[in-house]
Structure formats: structure tokens, C-alpha cells
Design a protein around this nucleic acid. Structure first.
Length: 497
RNA sequence: GAGGCUGUAGCUCAGCAGGUAGAGCAACGGACUUUUAAUCCGUAGGUCCCGGGUUCGAAUCCCGGCAGCCUCACCA
């Protein structure tokens, strides 16, 4: 039977439901408990002896009367008895519907049920002969017809394209998918709670920028008609949050979407969620402590231990996370002397990198990203970056070639990035002006933003700033090997008609 | 953007030395008041991703396109 015939069969049942005087699209349904909570009421079940204990009158269970609502995910009809498994967003439970027990009208409804329909159930919670906790229905409430057949009941929806295009089906039927996205929500809630506890305030900056600054990435371009100007979707939150530091918001953060017009991969989606937090009178070490706290509390909020499964192995998030310097790691993995440009160039050549015409710090960083980052299982804070590749970061007072920056690496992924923020307007202006040799313009963070310089000239408090890639953090905390598993609707080419 | 892999029933997948398409689940009809991926009997269901080509004959071979996945590049 093809798709049309499958739908026709369901529409026929929809008509029968109408003929029974019921709305096949349901309506308000009050007083039902989440299935997980109903399952907890198992302990209220009591054994009751009917009078005296005689042969033929064994003790019987008596359980609480419960009301549930959910989607039918499995159906087992056995003559005048029907077993359903219904699922809501907290769990699943078996429902037993007997023709004699529910009466003729309810039984007529039961015969119209298809996999995927939404139903409400009233009944007694107790065990079947085989010991399965079940709701023994005494009333059925039809809540919504599903006109489309669900995916295969055991294997589910496997095709990665269909899983993304029809995320509703992925969520409704595939084991663990809804749970992972609910866990993402808990992580984000925990981050907000932690920041609030530390005295941060949340703000909303503009997403349409005249200058796409604060990071090195190609922006999406759009157009405002009334002003007749091109605008960019933001690629970072940084420069507006720092303006707010100037304005006196001493602890401020934004948790929101940024957009980068770059490739798509298991670790990249063109729009993704970023946290940026800025703390006046702090520095990058302050931010290190904050990053650690945000992550540890997020893990605790999901009810997990600090040793999390990751693929075949696990990640140990027990604080304190390792702290290593950039040069130390470069020396260890690339076998070069980080202080000697000639040694670094030699190492880069060994790694097969093109070095001609490139700034020494650009070469150094390409070598670092080629040889070191993949090896960092972490969590590890990599500290003290070459200054030339960090145009928004304060330099070390006693070592101006080193920027007070760290990145947090976990499983080779850059999860967080933090600076002691540069607040010297003259140096900032100079760095915006300097285009590093070997870097095309769109790959540079150096984009002149005159208003931002003006803001710095009015005095930005010394500060620490932290950015966290929320999607990647959620990947690590939910054992998701691709970013698409933690973004509800990742970018796909539109379906063709 | 480059290379590799994949695309067959509503879903999950077989079939690909070229001979006219198959299973499981779902669906439909029948039996069944304790099943749990229920079971048993029966029925029906296809633009083999799209477009060309080779051939007597193409799901299968060739070319082009579309979509997804993986790797690489850019990026977080």
C-alpha cells in the first residue's frame, strides 16, 4: 500500500471518530500528569485481599487512578484487548484497553487508533500479569489524529537528511533525541544561573552590524531598504559588549546567535550560539575561573558526574582543568624552540606549511593549529598567545610579544576563548590599521571601527572577556559527535518542489 | 570550493557478472481479554533521486545534474 493509501486509511478512521461525535483534532485536556511522575507512583500500588483468602480469590493489586496524555508509539491488539505504548516528553508507559472494561463507545474509539495519534487516558495504575507497569484504561480521550505513518517502530528514522529536515519526527520517535535537546536547555539555563550568581547582567546587542567586527570570519550581507545601506549579520558579540563596559555595565553578557558565512562541517553550522561575558577589573585568569565554573555547574545541572562519556572513551571534567602555555605545547608537539623564529619556520616547513611572505606569528599559529590542537584531549587551558594574531587583547606588561589570551580545548575542539581585554585606544587603533602579512582581509580580525575606538577613548575599565561556543559545549556534555545533533534545525539546502 | 561514499515501497534495508523488483516493520481483511519489536493466516503497496546515453533489453554500465554524509580547505 503506497503513501496515498496509507493516508486514506487514516482519513477513514478520522471520519469514524467524527461520526462518534468526537473532534479528531482534540482540545484542552486538563489534569494529566507527566508519564515520568506517573511511573513514580508505582509505589502507591497495594495488595488487597478480597475478603478472606480463599482459593480462587487471590489478593489483587489496587493502584492510584491516573490521567496521562501522549503519542501512540506502539500498538498490540489481541482481540478484545489492546495494548498501547504512549510517550510524552518525560517517558513512556503501557496502556491496557479492554473492550469490556472501557465500554462500547471507548472501544469504538480504540479501534480508530493509529500509531502516531495523540491520546489521553484515565485509568488505574497497576501491573499486568507479566509485571509491566500499565494504565488499565477506563476512559479514552482522542486528542489528535496523525495522517502520516510514523517511521519504522524499531529502527526509527535513520536517514540523516530526513532526521534533519523532519526534526519533529526525529524528536518524536528516535530514542534519546528529545532528551538531548532538553539537556541542551538545561545547560543553557545553568549558564544563565551561574552568571546571574556571579552578578552578571544579560543584554541584547544588535544582530545587524554596519561593521562585522570582533572575529575573523566572512559575514552574511543583507540590505536595509529605508536607509538604503548594506548591513552584516554579526559574527561576534564582542565590540558592543565592550561599549557597555565603557557605559558602566561592570559585569555583562550576551548569549545569542552569531552568523558566519563559512563552510558546514560536523563542527560548524553557519549560525551558532555564542556566550560572551565581560567583567570589569578582571583579567584572563578571572575568566579562566569563570569558564571552569560555568562548565562544571552545567554538567551538574544535567545530573551527570564530571566524568562524561565521549565516543568510546570519556572526558574528565574534574577541576581544576590543566593550564599550559602556548609556547610550552608548541615546543612539546612541534619539537621547535618557540622563541626562535627560525626554528619555528623550520618546524612549519617540516609540517608541510607554506611560510614565505607570512608574519612570524602567523606561521607560528599555523604550525600550532596543524600540530598541536588535534592532540589536546583536554580539558586544557592554552595560555599566552603570540600577540600579533590577537588584535583585541592586552599584551603582557613585561613581554609585549605575548597576549594575555587563553583558549579552552577539549577533544581538539576550541570551546572557549578569552582575553584580558585591550583598553588602550591608541594601540587598538594601530592594531586595527595593521594588516598582517600573509592574511587576506576577510581572515583578519583587524577591521577599523571608529566608534569603538572613540568608546575606548572615553575609558573602558580593564577587564576580562570570555567567549564560549555553546553548541560545541553541548556536544561535549551530551556525547554528540556532530554539531547537527545539538542544533534543532541545522542549515540544509531547501527541498526542491 | 575539491575528492570519496550514498540515494530502491510510508520507514529500515536487500537486489547491481544487464533479463523487466524483494524482505521486515507499517497498512488493509480475518483469529485472539495479559501483550510488550505480540503471534498466526491472507491481501495490497514502486517515477528503483532526476535527465541523457550504451544495449534487443538498464535499479544494475557510462555521462550530466540534484540532495545527504565523510574527508580536506575556510571557520568556532
Amino acid at each position: 500500500m503506497g503513501g496515498e493509501a496509507l493516508e486514506a486509511a487514516r482519513r477513514e478512521k478520522l471520519q469514524k471518530i467524527r461520526q462518534l461525535g468526537l473532534d479528531p483534532w482534540g482540545g484542552r485536556f486538563d489534569g494529566h500528569e507527566p508519564i515520568a511522575r506517573i511511573r513514580q507512583r508505582e509505589k502507591e500500588i497495594r495488595m488487597v485481599a478480597p475478603g478472606d483468602c480463599q482459593i480462587g480469590h487471590p489478593p489483587q493489586e489496587q493502584g492510584p487512578h491516573v490521567r496521562a496524555a501522549g503519542r501512540i508509539v506502539l500498538q498490540r491488539p489481541t482481540g478484545k484487548l489492546l495494548f498501547l505504548n504512549i510517550r510524552d516528553w518525560t517517558g513512556q508507559i503501557q496502556v491496557l484497553i479492554g473492550q469490556r472494561q472501557v465500554g462500547e463507545k471507548n472501544w469504538a474509539v480504540a479501534k480508530c487508533l493509529d500509531l502516531g495519534d495523540l491520546v489521553g487516558v484515565d485509568g488505574e495504575l497497576k501491573h499486568t500479569k507479566t509485571g509491566e507497569l500499565s494504565i488499565f484504561a477506563d476512559a479514552l480521550h482522542f486528542l489528535c489524529k496523525s495522517l502520516e505513518p510514523p517511521p519504522a517502530k524499531f529502527k526509527g528514522l535513520r536517514d540523516p537528511e530526513l532526521r534533519q529536515r523532519m526534526r519533529y519526527l526525529d524528536l518524536a520517535y528516535n530514542e534519546g533525541v528529545l532528551e538531548r535537546f532538553l539537556r541542551r536547555t538545561k545547560i543553557v539555563e545553568s549558564i544563565r544561573r551561574t552568571l546571574a550568581g556571579e552578578g552578571f547582567v544579560e543584554v541584547e546587542g544588535p544582530t545587524l552590524h554596519a561593521i562585522a567586527g570582533g572575529a575573523a570570519a566572512r559575514p552574511f550581507i543583507t540590505h536595509h531598504n529605508a536607509l538604503d545601506i548594506d548591513l552584516y549579520l554579526r559574527i561576534a558579540l564582542e565590540l558592543h559588549l565592550k561599549r557597555l563596559l565603557v557605559g558602566g555595565m561592570e559585569r555583562v553578557y550576551e548569549l545569542g546567535r552569531v552568523y558566519r558565512n563559512e563552510g558546514i562541517s560536523p563542527r560548524h553550522n553557519p549560525e551558532f550560539t555564542m556566550l560572551e561575558a565581560y567583567q570589569a577589573y578582571g583579567d584572563y585568569r578571572t575568566m579562566m575561573d569563570l569558564a571552569e565554573k560555568l562548565i562544571v555547574e552545567a554538567i551538574q545541572a544535567t545530573g551527570q558526574s564530571l566524568r562524561l562519556p565521549w565516543g568510546e572513551g570519556e572526558i574528565d571534567f574534574t577541576p581544576p582543568f590543566a593550564r599550559r602555555t602556548y609556547d610550552e605545547l608548541l615546543a612539546e608537539y612541534a619539537k621547535v624552540d618557540p622563541a626562535e623564529p627560525a626554528s619555528v619556520v623550520e618546524g612549519a616547513r617540516r609540517a608541510g606549511l607554506e611560510t614565505a611572505g607570512k608574519h612570524p606569528d602567523v606561521v607560528k599559529n599555523e604550525l600550532f593549529e596543524t600540530v598541536v590542537t588535534d592532540q589536546l584531549a583536554g580539558p586544557v587551558f592554552v595560555m599566552d598567545y603570540p600577540a600579533a594574531i590577537c588584535p583585541l587583547t592586552k599584551r603582557k606588561t613585561d613581554a609585549p610579544h605575548i597576549a594575555e589570551r587563553f583558549e579552552l580545548f577539549i577533544q581538539g575542539m576550541e570551546v572557549a576563548n578569552a582575553y584580558t581585554e585591550l583598553n588602550d585606544p591608541d594601540l587598538q587603533e594601530e592594531l586595527f590599521r595593521t594588516q598582517l602579512a600573509g592574511l587576506p582581509e576577510e581572515e583578519s580580525m583587524a577591521r577599523m571601527d571608529r566608534d569603538f575606538i572613540r568608546a575606548l577613548r572615553h575609558g573602558m575599565p580593564p577587564a576580562g572577556g570570555l567567549g564560549i561556543g555553546i553548541d560545541r559545549l553541548v556536544m561535549l556534555l551530551t556525547n554528540a559527535q556532530t554539531i547537527r545533533e545539538v542544533i534543532l534545525f541545522p542549515l540544509l539546502r531547501p527541498e526542491q518542489e
